[in-house]
Design a binder for these strands. Sequence first.
DNA 1: GTCTATAACGAGATAGAC
DNA 2: GTCTATCTCGTTATAGAC
Lengths: 213, 213
Amino acid sequence: MKRSRPRGTADLILDTAERLVQTRGFNAFSYADVSEELGIRKASLHHHFATKAELGAALIDRYHRSFCDALRAIERGSDDARERLTRYIELYGSVLRRKRMCLCGMLAADVDTLPAAMRASVATFFAENETWLAGMLDAGRRSGALRFEGTSASVARFFVSSLEGAMLVARGGGGGKVFDAVAHHLLAEVGKGAGQARRPARGRQRAARGRTA
Amino acid sequence: MKRSRPRGTADLILDTAERLVQTRGFNAFSYADVSEELGIRKASLHHHFATKAELGAALIDRYHRSFCDALRAIERGSDDARERLTRYIELYGSVLRRKRMCLCGMLAADVDTLPAAMRASVATFFAENETWLAGMLDAGRRSGALRFEGTSASVARFFVSSLEGAMLVARGGGGGKVFDAVAHHLLAEVGKGAGQARRPARGRQRAARGRTA
DNA sequence: GTCTATAACGAGATAGAC
DNA sequence: GTCTATCTCGTTATAGAC
């Protein structure tokens, strides 16, 4: 665990801006909003982040690093693929419970209006996210803990899309049950085996009958 | 099919505004944008839609009705549950191919900044969408054409979320392969394999999936 | 129904004092 | 690093002529 040192002004600005973007979108928050909340003049904000594009880029950068830290924490926290997957899903769930959208999910909606640098960073976030997840899925399949059809890359895209969509639709009015449903079905997708055996679809798959405790 | 009668000014405004919202979001388009594109002064736009909130409400209303028409067309077009499901997924795919986000998916991202009336309409769109889909899934399960775990409502939420998320992430940089992956796995979720997965030579699923690409 | 003109406000950004 | 003051532009919206 990182020591949480006293946060500088730049960090406080990022904290506030991050929440505003996650809830309102990049085009619906302003320096004035951050200024009011922090009790700092707009001009001072420009001292730390000269332009809104620069602030936006810094937001993605920090969010991305923070997300990668969380992924490493998942790796350290458990060896079991299903447990890791559950914690991965919970990463998204915790964001939603704070009434936020994933930062990059929100920015993906705004993508046509973003500066090129931000657009590229959003794409990178999703790509690396999917790459990590695919690696985890592959390891799980090799160990027999997970069972799924198709390539791990394809399933990883499915997971990321579904989780981002769950947050979106939940916020759009569906509420928490939307996310719960998606989390449940995604886990089932990779062979939520032992407890609730899938319908005995005769010889559905001859490979990887691996069951875990 | 409805005759396409000559479109009035209000319809043209809605057409343009709809595309702008679907690509840029509700807060990143302006009367000036619509004005420039249609060659009509801003003040004239206000004659048709007095406020932006009113325009937004009209957008959702028309989109919702159009979507319901498409659902009815699916019901008329085929009796087969899997075929209906494929066409349902293709509804989303066609929007994405036009480089747009689902209108209500986009508005779901903007939800914290929307007028209350619009927010309620967005929620209704998703709710009715899920209700229709759940009914379709139930009928498919009864007929034996579909096979899935859990309630139809839960699976319907999963479908809508995943499809919305697929559009979001695809636009965020993932591209068309994201949507293809999601479409594929969603179909598998309802028992694509009931005997077909073992015979990959059979052309049906391939053809169906090809249209989604 | 469409126009010109303008009001009233908020946005991102800059200059320069302290 | 933070401030006051200001600039310029874009936004939604209105008044009133044609």
